[in-house]
Design a protein around this nucleic acid. Structure first.
Length: 373
RNA sequence: GGGGAGGUUCCCGAGCGGCCAAAGGGAACAGACUGUAAAUCUGUCGGCGUCAGCCUACGGAGGUUCGAAUCCUCCCCUCCCCA
């Protein structure tokens, strides 16, 4: 088995941990942030850029690549890494999130989910747990995800339970369908905002024995305290020697809070999407670059930042690029935001290693509050 | 000189007697974005006021009408065609 997780260190003052996992495409240190490359590209960046930013693993998507260009095509190329010229690890989401985000275009049955193509509204495709695994085996990611239903919020307890139990049955079917020993398979915990359901789902998945465990169905509209409570309800049920992945999260604060509660892996579109929409993350809060206050501003986005964009360009110039709708704006913004995220997670790792995570967290959250005031 | 088209709120541009502070774009200003249907979406966009409402507005000046951006008269200005 090519996948293996090693726990290196546990923080004495919190549930934070330092670890690493190995995959056929190399090693990844945790906690890790995975940039999102849904369509086999992290929008606006080349693989070379990603390496320069220090990205160790990226996320891609089963549903989107299945529809276009088709998983068969990617298999012909020898997998997604070769197809997109990224030779480091990849994790593919199963399409479970599209069950949530494309809710108007899909129908759930016990067998699986039928999607109406969001691209042309035409062809309907049924994705079953078995098919999700087959597609992900064709894509050849290092880590693949069980097919789940990302439960919409709010959900009644009855529905949350029904959805969770179906997701568990699907998880079992994914496990049975899997044939490629080189790929790791992660199970996904659901249960909406009910701590007892979260715990129960986590325990059931642990009984099935997955390579890693993900927390899904979070950051879907609930409050932050609720999300943190759900993490706290799930993590204690998980084995220490397996990685824990908080799917789709989150803001910089969420990542710090997640690590504090024992999470090892994160992914989120926020740095990349917000960059394209002109909102940048900085050490002092966010900068909405299109705002008039930056018109004459000669400073970089964040004077504390060591990224290429901040080393070379002013806020005024970036504002101009955004206002003029120039494509470079998107790229420079994405470089900055991903640098911020990857640097944040690197700093977190360093602090866990030094045993100073708790102080780091305190200072980090304090500086965020100060910048809001 | 003759013939024709037109001047609308920051810009373009609809409206062509009341439902018009005036459609729709753009610009501007602000907000949102969490396993990407996203280089997207939302809000504001004449002034004052707490809703009501009041004031100033459709080139200018008059006029018709209960009522005009819309109809009439004159004037000013743009553009096109023919000389």
């Amino acid at each position: 088995m090519s996948f293996g997780f090693t726990l290196i260190k546990k923080d004495p003052g919190s549930s934070a941990r330092l670890g690493r996992f190995t995959t056929p495409h190399g090693e990844v240190r945790t906690p890790v942030f995975m940039p999102v490359g849904t369509q086999a590209t992290v929008k606006t960046l080349s693989p070379e850029d990603l390496v320069a930013l220090g990205a160790e693993i990226i996320l891609s998507n089963t549903y989107h690549l299945f529809l276009r260009p088709g998983h068969e095509l990617i298999r012909e190329f020898g997998g997604i890494q070769k197809f997109m010229a990224w030779n480091r690890p990849v994790l593919t989401d199963s399409g479970g999130f599209q069950v949530f985000s494309l809710a108007d275009l899909r129908k759930i049955t016990e067998d699986g989910v039928t999607f109406q193509s969001h691209i042309d509204g035409g062809a309907r495709h049924i994705i079953t747990p078995e098919y999700a695994v087959e597609i992900q085996e064709s894509l050849g990611a290092d880590i693949i995800m069980a097919f789940d239903e990302c439960t919409p919020y709010p959900a009644t307890k009855d529905y949350a339970l029904e959805s969770l139990e179906r997701t568990l049955r699907w998880a079992k079917r994914c496990q049975t369908a899997k044939t490629n020993k080189d790929q790791a398979l992660f199970g996904i915990i659901q249960g909406s905002m009910f701590p007892d359901l979260r715990k129960r789902c986590a325990e059931a998945l642990v009984d099935m024995d997955f390579d890693g465990y993900a927390l899904g169905g979070l950051s879907v509209g609930e409050t932050k305290p609720m999300m943190y409570e759900m993490i706290e309800a799930s993590v204690p049920a998980l084995p220490e020697e397996r990685p824990r992945y908080l799917m789709g999260v989150g803001t910089p604060e969420d990542i710090v809070e997640g690590v504090d509660r024992g999470i090892d892996m994160f992914d989120c579109v926020m740095p990349t999407r917000n960059a394209r929409n002109g909102t940048f993350f900085t050490s002092f809060g966010k900068v909405v670059i299109k705002n008039a206050q930056y018109e004459h501003d000669k400073q970089p986005i964040d004077p504390q930042c060591g990224c290429y964009t901040c080393a070379n360009f002013s806020r005024a110039y970036l504002r101009h690029l955004f206002n003029a709708n120039e494509v470079l704006a998107l790229r420079l913004g994405t470089i900055h935001n991903l640098f911020y995220y990857i640097n944040l997670i690197r700093t977190i790792r360093m602090n866990i290693d030094k045993g100073t995570f708790t102080e780091f967290k305190k200072d980090f959250l304090h500086s965020r509050i100060q910048s809001v005031l």
